[in-house]
Design a protein around this nucleic acid. Sequence first.
RNA 1: GCCGCGAUGGCGGAAUUGGUAGACGCACACGACUCAAAAUCGUGCGGAGCAAUCCAUGAGAGUUCGAUUCUCUCUCGCGGCACCA
Length: 1214
Amino acid sequence: MPKYDHKKIESKWKKSWEKNKIYKTNESSDKPKYYVLDMFPYPSGAGLHVGHPKGYIATDIVARQKMMQGYNVLHPMGWDAFGLPAENYALKNKVHPAEATAENIKVFKKQLGLLGFTYDWDREVNTTDPEYYKWTQWIFLQLFKKGLAFESYEPINWCPSCKTGLANEDLEDGKCERCGSVVEQKPLRQWVLKITDYAERLLNDIELLKEWPESIKEMQRNWIGKSEGAIVKFSVVSTTTTPSPSFERRGNVVTPPARGGVGLEAGGGWSNSFEVFTTRPDTLFGATYCVVAPENKMIDELRLKINNIDEVDAYLAQAKKKTTLERTELQKEKTGVELKGVKAVNPVNGEELPIFVADYVLGNYGTGAIMAVPAHDERDFEFAKKYGIRVANVVAKQIGDRINAAVRKVCVGAIIKNKNKYLALYDNITKEYRLPGGGVESNEDDVSALTREIGEETGYANYTIKEFLGEIEANFYALYKKENRIKPFRCYVVELINEDKKEVKGEDARFDVLWLKEEEIMEVFLKNPVDGGEHEMIKRVFGVEKVCFVDDGVAINSGFLNGLETKEAKEKMIKWLEEKGLGQRKIQYKLRDWVFSRQRYWGEPIPLVHCDKCAQRKPKILYIHGIYGSAEENWVPWFKKEMTERGYEVLTPNLSNSESEVNFGEWINELKKLPITQGDKLFIVGHSFGARFACKYIEENGWYVEKLIMVGPTGPSQNESSWKALGAVGCSEESIESVRRLNKEKIDLEKVNELVNATTLYLSDNDPYIPMDVVSDYVGLVLAVRKFHNKGHFNKSAGILELPEILGEFPEVSKLNLGWYPIPEKDLPLELPKVKNYEPTGTGESPLAGIDKWVNTLCPHCGGPAKRETNTMPQWAGSCWYYLAYAMKFGSKFEWNKEKINYWNPVDLYVGGAEHATRHLIYARFWHKFLFDIGVVNSVEPFTKLQNVGLILAEDGRKMSKRWNNVINPDDVVAEFGADSMRLYEMFMGPFDQACAWSTKGVIGCRRFLEKVWNLSLSVIPSDPRTSLVIPSEARADEGSPSRHDRDFSPTATGIRNDKNAKLEILLNQTIKKVGEDIQALHFNTAISQLMIFVNEASQSSVLSLQSFASFLQLLAPFAPHIAEELWAELGNKESIFKSAWPKHDPTKIQHSEITVVVQVNGKLRDEIIVPVDISEADVKAQALGTEKIQKWLEGKEPKKVIYVKGKLVSIVI
RNA sequence: GCCGCGAUGGCGGAAUUGGUAGACGCACACGACUCAAAAUCGUGCGGAGCAAUCCAUGAGAGUUCGAUUCUCUCUCGCGGCACCA
């Protein structure tokens, strides 16, 4: 047999596998499915280095093992090919990005091919393929239709070098993640995805991700950044007496939105309130000033009331110039300017507080304004110190538990001063700080007690008592004595005369005497968790609150909150605010909406069209009243006024209310006369009978409705008592009969559901006509149900003349995307036009904007002239759903085949770099949840198990990079040592998820191992005939019977049966067990180590059977597929090793009949004994005690205790 | 600053329901084979000591018969977030 020639073997088997399509996967299989996925690569021009394939090797190993274990395995590969680098490369080299990408993919594919992966290339996907991005666009359109994509003009992060807007996730330290340029804030029209609507679910469902690394989950939690707190409303008063001139806008001010914050009074007055967000509503009494962010529009609205507006403007201009980077990184000192002439009124105590503008408050978090509580917030504290603002302490440290506290005798304590330092004692036993002092004995006065204590505890003898600070009550847990205490504590200031001291003896020697500076001693005591009165003493000596206290504690100086712990105080304050209408509970997230447009060429076109004419049309609300109802009663007039102010057109037809019966046809006819046309943003509110009728109307009309709100709707669940109640208020029999009739008439709820984007149902617990049960009448609709208390039938007889809750159902008009229409789905994909000039413009316009022929189109709605959206999607779009695409591929096309998608979904194992934690992995989870919501995938989460790949560093320990000239190319490694050696080495380097430096010597070590295997085969496989051992594919290794084989080389037949043989058999079984388990756990390094142990042992023992060697090859096959396949064939097998069944270990053969038990004396290893495996505890103990060595260690003493750990050790305690 | 993770021979690393620390590989040393070298095979390989034995898993303490594994404090390194109220 020839020497191990990797080149020959590897090319031979690659061809064979390809030809026989052994990796071809299909869904028609009765085997269980297993979906292993790699994060698909971005095909860069540089090609692969050895680090890239590490993850692919791991998935390949798992895929091959799973195949052998009888799973139907999907292990695909594709290309994430849109994005800036390809475009930049193309620009530089004057080739079209499509061509450059195709070229790069070719190189990548060839490189990957060298490593012998199991990809089913028939399922290859490429995000830049129009057939692929047809579906990226389709998903975007679904998001658009559900109101989750909206047009925004807020300033966004703009990279001046990449010339495009970026999402929050695309920044690193305020710099562009791609090119490192400092990002600017630029107001820009853009498309934004409302990922924040999913924030809560993205956060909660992290719980479901049991098999994700904890670190990634933590990063996602932090990124989502949930904070619970409250919104508090502060009113603003003017302190200037000069009457303001008639209101006039200055400068280029954008019309303020109606949302939150400051509103203008109708008469053109000035703003009179603003809102802040806080997580510490319990500290409201401690607010001593307020801060608004420079971006906050209230400054403009207040400007006529601000006396120092020039100074403020200067600050705003300066703040605007600062980049995000400067605002965060160069944050050394906080700056700000007071808005003179106005004051904020603290709602809880009416105090007038100064208002500042300062850029330490962010415009895009919370409300862009804060209440500042310097005593309990580090940042506010810093700012307050700088500007000399009052600090008001309203939270005290939580001290002992009063209930179980022992009242102690009067104590004295001292702060000892020496020059500018102060003395603190550090207790080495309890690890706490305290001040010298102690109890006053019955025969002492304060001074003698103090003198005694200072002497005992510090040793100092020469000092004068300077000042008595008064008595305080200290309530605390005394660690040293382990009890709760309350003590009257009398405080003195003492000054040292000189440092002469006596030795400290006895119990008091446990103290270290520390001399601390003012700041240090405050730090030590004000932050010390245990406080025996020191906190208060320090405050009295140094003046109040020079250190701010941010922890939870007990409310003080806080009116009705006094004495409550932080948690309770928060709750009580929120309740108070809500009752008074001065604020409400609020949950805030750090997660920002996803800026989804890029002003570049190489991305998916956004499939929307804008029609100026249609944009002029207001969104419409159709209100349908109930029987005997009208549009002039109940809350309708109020509602009409409110919504008209918000920019909606509210249609409230009075429908014919015949005394005898309602004529559906007539109602429909009357509604058809209303000025509503297809394509209008239409909202429908139906009350009572009007609600059910609304469903009927939608069904017949067939137009798309943004939202249907059903208030106390009639339904088949209404019963005799509701009819009676109706009769009682004078409803005629005929009318009741018509309601009954419509209730019975079938409404196609499924169709209604398709036409309506969202449905909400309002019910009241004391509605005389509508029982809560009507919910079940509408289960066909995906609806939100809101149950109200005590609102009757939502009419004037229940006293309902306003229904404030309903206002929240309607989005701001600016988020309704007026004038925007999706292109019809049948026209997808909207292909990226082929152009000559795809350079970014840098103006904020996409290069596509310059192609008139492409831009100008017709409005899908009115048929008039319209323009296409010219921004493209970000690189992350295509990767949000690619794992589904592999299951959707049919030839060169994709098809949303739910059955096939759901066969594979979710991904069982997903392997990739940790750098995607807060981008791809959040974006993909978001899209997946959305797809679940619209019913096109069957799981809430896309990836069951996630595994991070550790980086491979260069041999010098640095990152592999052209710059350092330390890149190792896999092609070279494969050529020199073979793909099998490289695969083996990359898995052997260390723990899979850990970074590790490349070592060529290490590769050689793995190569040597494979050569050993090769040589082992020489000694095992008889040279002739070659068809010596065939293991049928369905055979299990552990049940293979000798009769199935052409020849029998089993140990029994050859007559070799000895110790060595049994030993090797046990080792093989152990190896089968360990390798199987280790692959499962992705502990490849230890699996390989076990394989090495087996080969070392087998090489030396010369009793290896063919059968055992075959099992070994099966274990090796996932790691080193080529050599394993070659030797497998040498054994005479006609079918691929990957069609064979993964070996199973024999549980009776993993343990030797005799085991070594070690004997410890007092925890130290002293001897070992060899005993039968089934020895009894008594016997093993007796034997252990009996050995010569142990007898020597016992020195005749009786053992106190003998512990036996089964099969491992005996521990003797003497 | 906050959050998370980690620290074991000359190097990569193994061992955690607490039970023989250093598996496996690399490097190194010696020996065999060879005229010689490479390759290969064999032996050794944490430190100290002739040895018995002692010391050793970042440092210090604690719990335990017994700690790399659990608890506390600290140091260093890596990753993430960073004025998010």
